[in-house]
Design a protein around this nucleic acid. Structure first.
Lengths: 401, 401
DNA sequence: GCTCCTTATTTTCCGCTGTCAATGAAAGAA
DNA sequence: TTCTTTCATTGACAGCGGAAAATAAGGAGC
């Protein structure tokens, strides 16, 4: 295990090298030949690109006892040495900051939550810095340097500039978060929208590996959606994209905070569900957990609300599928704690509203723990780390067929 | 003017060369320096790539009298010689085949319509072949060879294989149209979905030039949508994409042929409008033209139907904008003959339903003549021609920042 | 007309990348 | 042992694209 070293750049200076590393990173141990096939390169190119990465300790070689071919020379597997570098991911929510320490393979080593005293940039930055400090101490204990910090915030975030343009939730405008956090922590900082960050994590380390088009739908306090098209995460021209929460499901439905009626979010967000369950049952449930409890107890009114919410989500997903034809939709988010109340309705509504072959899209319900959002932030940091000086041009995202 | 020559491949063997040519093709006469800037290359690279293209006659040099800099050496403009090669585009509709002869700049030189006796592949192929033959004679008259044929068909089309997987409209399944048409006509054939073809034309020669994300929405017999994301046309994993026509606008609305209720198409397609105008006014209008006439005459019931249709389209577009954040939406299609009855309602509904900054998306209403569809088909042929042997990898579409 | 200044384009190197074809390595089979 | 098969590496090499220097083509000043 190497000791924390000075700033040293990632030794992948060509686009091919970083593509090869990304392939190994996300598709797990592979033989060089297999890497070549998947990255669309010659075996020679892989050999040449892999060597410096092994020398620098980012890749290691394994022998495969299992997947040995029936005949011929056995292959040597190449895989990423997760322990070579650490990353910190931070997700800012309304009342808590969640932080994780991950390795280079984006495996969570330590997770911490800290309550947030206030939502202004100063308070958030201070609290986040405290959290980072704690995680840095953990990292010190491991004797591995932390190579980057990723921060995930909801709203319109300009990742390239590291600026939070507008976060309605935090009531921030044009906060240069990356710069501020870099000054405070001394780490290279990546800032991105929270849903997009989660999408990056799924693309590289989750259910989106190897897909060139998929969607991540998050259900909880809000309804969000991260989209990958042509291998890149969609950011939107004006900072808006993936607003599945404001797809209209029922123009006569409940009013949404956005001003319209019957948005998915006005029917299926935690708040909306709580409000509707109260109205339907007369029980003054305090939060989504209690609302779900009521439904689990078999109270018909509450169950009905969940059914309607699942229906709205399913329709929203069908809209995405009809428009983009993703290979897969991954449904996640803390709202899925009430998983069993939703799932069938989501699937049914999707199947009904999906047009033609769009129904063949693979809909996965994947209840991810809350820490997963912070892991998404770490994933963006890993992404930035790998690209560091290479890839000046890659704007939208890695092309990863 | 060169005489029709034997098969000769397009001299852009590197990705940079074809990118440079594409830039000049779609962004019109440019100085070499400007090309370099837009393509993200050095001036030297442009000079080197341009030379063989000029020698082969695809590019020509112009002097700019106007845009001469105040100081310094005047720039030489480079532009595509449209007359260097011709293309034929064919669009198959339910009862007609539309064909156009275009030059390399995709300018329509000749347009022809032929009635279609039947919809089976044999009939379509025969009629199309006749049309192509006529256009080839026109081309002969110009003394320039026809370098490709593009065919646009509605439905699920596999462009890479040249196969029409499923066209509900024509009732085709797995018809290897490219192969059949190539045998019949002796031309290199490209087959693509009609809306995608139109989108390619807009991307290269229309209102989408220079944009990396935009949408084309077509209004008419159906409501379709072509999407460009990250510079590439979205094709969808299972052949479905851009089905804005089946976005639900009103779950209590009229039944759609897809089985659901209140799809945009069930409210705003020509058929739907005719049906609704009949019901609202009691007048047995025969087609969309008569329905529009009624509305133009000020019949309130008819105007109301158009208002509702415009509203549905506007909401559908807002859904696209909320999900993808395109820089621009181009609304087109033969249905726009009734332009003035729609337009304000489209804009209003869009403005209302667009979430946050998504409303900043530029919505253009662009009534394109019907021939434009066939021009789209020609554009796909031009695209294939340029890529011919180069660019083995470019799957989704040109990256064009 | 000559010189200088500015901008556009071309030329000349030059490093570097990724491919090709040949070679080496590591098994199991005959 | 010798083949055969598959994986991996090597070295020669073509060619791309960049940097910088050179060249070209005006206008302005004198």
């Amino acid at each position: 295990m190497s000791s924390p070293s000075a700033v040293e750049s990632f030794p992948a200076h060509t686009s091919a090298a970083s593509q090869i590393f990304t392939t190994v990173l996300s598709q797990g141990p592979l033989t060089r030949l297999e890497v070549a096939r998947r990255a669309g390169l010659s075996a020679a190119a892989v050999t040449k690109a892999v060597r410096p990465l092994i020398e620098a300790g980012y890749l290691v070689e394994d022998v495969d006892e299992d997947a040995r071919p029936a005949l011929g020379r056995p292959a040597n597997l190449v895989r990423v040495d997760g322990g070579r570098a650490l990353f910190i991911g931070v997700k800012v929510t309304g009342d808590t900051i969640i932080g994780v320490l991950t390795d280079l393979c984006c495996r969570i080593l330590v997770a911490r939550h800290i309550p947030l005293p206030a939502r202004d940039p100063r308070a958030v930055l201070g609290t986040a810095a405290e959290l980072v400090r704690e995680l840095l101490i953990e990292a010190d204990g491991l004797g591995v340097r932390v190579a980057g910090l990723g921060m995930a915030v909801s709203g319109d975030v300009d990742r390239a500039e590291g600026v939070v343009r507008y976060s309605p939730f935090l009531e921030w405008r044009d906060v240069p978060l990356a710069e501020l956090a870099a000054m405070t922590t001394g780490l290279p900082v990546t800032v991105d929208n929270d849903v997009r960050a989660l999408t990056v994590a799924e693309q590289w380390f989750g259910a989106g590996v190897g897909l060139s088009g998929f969607a991540v739908v998050t259900v909880g306090a809000g309804i969000g959606c991260g989209l990958v098209v042509h291998g890149g995460v969609v950011a939107g021209a004006h900072g808006v994209a993936g607003e599945i929460g404001h797809v209209t499901v029922d123009p006569a439905g409940p009013r949404c905070h956005c001003g319209n009626r019957g948005c998915v979010e006005a029917i299926a967000s935690d708040d909306a569900i709580v409000r509707q369950v109260r109205a339907a049952t007369g029980v003054q449930v305090a939060d989504a957990v209690e609302a779900a409890g009521l439904a689990h107890d078999g109270v018909a009114g509450a169950r009905e609300i969940y059914a309607r919410a699942g229906d709205a989500i399913g329709r929203g997903i069908a809209t995405v599928a009809n428009l983009l034809g993703p290979e897969r939709v991954i449904i996640s988010g803390e709202g899925l704690a009430a998983y069993d109340l939703f799932a069938d309705h989501i699937r049914d509504a999707f199947a009904t509203a999906a047009f033609g072959s769009a129904a063949r899209c693979d809909v996965q319900i994947r209840p991810l723990p809350f820490d997963e959002w912070a892991r998404g932030a770490a994933a963006t940091a890993i992404q930035s780390f790998i690209r560091s000086d290479a890839n000046q041009r890659g704007r939208g995202g890695e092309q990863q067929p």
